[in-house]
Amino acid sequence: MNREEIFTNVQSIFRDIFDEEGLVISDTTNADDIIEWDSLNHINLVSSIEKEFLIKFALGELATMKNVGSMIDLMVKKIHIKEN
């Protein structure tokens, strides 16, 4: 799975969790850009991503994610390790 595919898939998870069909995200999107993106929805988001991609985030990793781009970079690494 390449970064673009991961990105598209993550966008669809964002749309489900924040209940907005037309939501468009970019690498720089962060919690300030989406009103509903509070700490509880963050947990729901991460949990859905973990289930969809069958990966796990460690505690510290979650704290360092500044925006969508850095989250996807981390996912690319994890998925790459899993696929090899």
Binding site: I13, D16, I17, D19, N44, S47, S48, K51, E52
Partner: peptide, 10 residues
């Protein structure tokens, strides 16, 4: 479970 958690809003 997966569907319920992710699609709860719709």
């Amino acid at each position: 479970i997966k569907n319920i958690l992710r699609k709860k809003n719709s």
